[in-house]
């Protein structure tokens, strides 16, 4: 299926966020179009993760408007963001350590599982059908990400690279419209990075999922992104196609370095 980039589905206008006197984000605007891979880059402490936290409602910006799928919001909690179809992974793996891979991914579908606890206590009729239907969808994601062999292993026992993949699986299980990935390739070796790139591209292509990505590996960013936003000290210093950004003198000065 050919990729099609559609209209703007997420529009951030003049976002400012501060913690006490510390300004994390200052007057930032950018948008994300349906079906594209949008990267956010910048040096450490530039406000990239804060930006993601604003998008999925962990932080509430003091100023600015967020328009997602045509609906404007000032304040939203993470639970509402999830209900609207925003899923994410974390910079430091945030899996549920005591649970198996399968259970972790199943939690991604919790929002869609509406049977109340009395049905579940009986595990009979609709409750069982529900569990099995969702298990089927989860197995498709497990197949997709090639983690069949570890589905019953507690995630705490897995190596780092696989944990990152399980976290992606859990986010995908929610069938998000917008997927936020916070450094999905940090700390990986080349093969693992290649695998992860392939999965991200496949998700984007086959399911048309819109992706916002934070990443420090410039090779990866320039290769797979449609458009790139550059942040520095909480300000936007660049925005555009990978090539434009790469050659922007201000971006080179702040982040990429002259040699690149």
């Amino acid at each position: 299926m050919a990729r099609t980039i559609g209209d703007v589905i997420l529009d951030l206008q003049n976002i400012s966020l501060s913690f006490g006197g510390v300004k994390a984000l200052t007057n930032i605007s950018f948008n994300v179009r349906q079906g594209e891979i949008r990267s956010i880059i910048g040096p450490n402490g530039a406000g990239k993760s804060s930006m993601l936290n604003v998008i999925n409602g962990v932080y509430h910006p003091q100023e600015g408007r967020i328009i997602f799928m045509g609906k404007e919001r000032r304040k939203m909690n993470p639970h509402e963001a999830a209900a609207q179809g925003i899923a994410r992974t974390f910079q430091n793996i945030a899996l549920f350590k005591g649970m198996t891979v399968l259970d972790n991914i199943m939690t991604g579908r919790n929002l869609m599982m509406k049977r109340n606890f009395l049905w579940n206590a009986l595990y009979w009729g609709p409750a069982q059908r529900d569990e099995i239907a969702h298990r089927k969808r989860v197995e498709e994601i497990i197949d997709f990400l090639e983690i069949q062999h570890i589905r019953k292993v507690p995630v705490g026992r897995l190596p780092y690279g696989l944990q990152k993949r399980v976290e992606l699986a859990r986010a995908l299980a929610a069938e998000p419209k917008l997927l936020l990935l916070d450094e999905p390739m940090a700390g990986m070796n080349v093969e693992e990075k290649q695998d992860m790139c392939r999965f991200i591209l496949d998700v984007n292509e086959q399911w048309g999922t819109t992706i916002v990505l934070i990443e420090h590996d410039m090779g990866v960013v320039m290769d797979i992104s449609d458009r790139v936003v550059v942040l520095d000290y909480g300000r936007k210093i660049g925005d555009g196609l990978p090539n434009e950004v790469k050659n922007d003198p201000e971006v080179i000065k702040a982040y990429l370095g002259a040699v690149y």
Binding site: N56, V58, N77, P78, H79, A81, A82, A83, A87, R88, F90, A94, L95, F96, K97, T107, G108, N110, L111, R170, A171, A174
Partner: peptide, 9 residues
């Protein structure tokens, strides 16, 4: 991990 739980919905 309560933060991750909330983000998942």
């Amino acid at each position: 991990m309560d933060v991750a739980a909330e983000v998942i919905g």
